Amino acid sequence: MSDDAGGTDIQRVTRRPAGPDESARANRVWWERAADDYQAEHGSFLRDTGFLWGPEGVDEADVRLLGPVEDLRGTRVLELGCGAGQCSRWLRSHGVEQVAAVDVSHRQLQHALRIDEHTGVRVPVGQADVQRLPFAAEAFDLVCSAFGGLPFVPDAEAAVAESARVLRPGGRLVFSVSHPFRWCFPDDPGERGLTVRQSYFDRRAYVEENSAGRAVYVEHHHTVGDWVRAVVGAGLVLRDLVEPEWPEDNPETWDGWSPLRGRLFPGTAVFTAVKPEG
């Protein structure tokens, strides 16, 4: 699917600024096209009803970064960038009834509905950009996101502030993104991916353009400090930053994530923050 002049075939890869509208549009188009292949390639790893925080395979059932799942029953939960709803479906399967999920891609949500039918565990989903959430202020007790949406936003502070807006006082935001340290290295799972090629401090977006020069994929880099400032600037209190080590029992390679690299430096960062009471 494409509404881009010039189609979605990649003609050039560049590093340049990209604003919120261009980023959202490019990534919506890209995910509409990539959703089928993504679910076919990674669906068995993610599981129809599973909550993994990243390509390392760190499982919420084991690490409980959201807290004891029984404590979430009766709370209102929003998942950002849900893909096919695997994480939300895991929550629903553990008795968390008030779960909603959004994704920028309509095709990803179609996969969510397909899996709902297959599993019998249904997740209310909607198409939305994480930069502009269609919910009232203080509507949720928990906002969570496993690599969903936030790696693709140009303004980390604005996106985290939007998540904070829909949190009630006392609510929590827990989200994972590509570890900022990875930005220094080529996105290669092998030996080449162990050599620094670019500056950690270069915040220009990674942009793939079509033949007309229009962005068809955009990914943004924010440093660890940028994410911390985004959390604090949104009025939240940072409680934890988890950098998962590569599990010994995971031999899988996922694009640039691999056991080789994952045992030397982190590939994922998980931030946990709380909205103060009062």
Rank of each mutant, 00 (worst) to 15 (best):
A100M: 14
A100V: 15
A100E: 14
A100Y: 13
A101K: 08
A101E: 10
A101D: 08
A101T: 07
D103L: 07
D103F: 06
V104M: 09
V104W: 08
S105L: 11
S105Q: 13
S105P: 04
S105M: 11
S105E: 08
H106C: 01
H106A: 07
H106M: 04
H106P: 00
H106S: 02
H106V: 06
R107A: 08
R107S: 02
R107N: 04
R107G: 00
R107T: 14
Q108H: 12
Q108D: 07
Q108P: 05
Q108R: 07
L109I: 11
L109V: 05
L109F: 09
Q110V: 03
Q110D: 08
Q110I: 04
H111E: 06
H111R: 13
H111G: 07
A112E: 01
A112I: 02
A112W: 02
L113R: 13
L113F: 05
L113Y: 02
L113G: 02
R114Q: 06
R114G: 01
R114W: 06
R114E: 04
R114N: 05
R114P: 03
R114K: 04
R114T: 10
I115S: 02
I115P: 02
I115M: 03
D116Y: 00
D116L: 00
E117H: 03
E117F: 02
E117D: 07
E117T: 06
E117S: 01
E117P: 01
H118S: 09
H118A: 11
T119S: 04
T119N: 05
T119R: 05
T119E: 03
G120I: 10
G120V: 11
V121I: 15
V121A: 10
V121S: 11
V121L: 12
R122D: 09
R122L: 12
R122S: 14
V123E: 04
V123D: 01
V123N: 03
V123L: 15
V123Q: 09
P124V: 12
P124A: 11
V125K: 06
V125C: 14
V125H: 13
G126C: 13
G126F: 14
G126H: 12
G126T: 14
Q127A: 15
Q127L: 12
Q127Y: 10
A128V: 14
A128I: 11
A128T: 14
A128P: 15
A128K: 15
D129K: 10
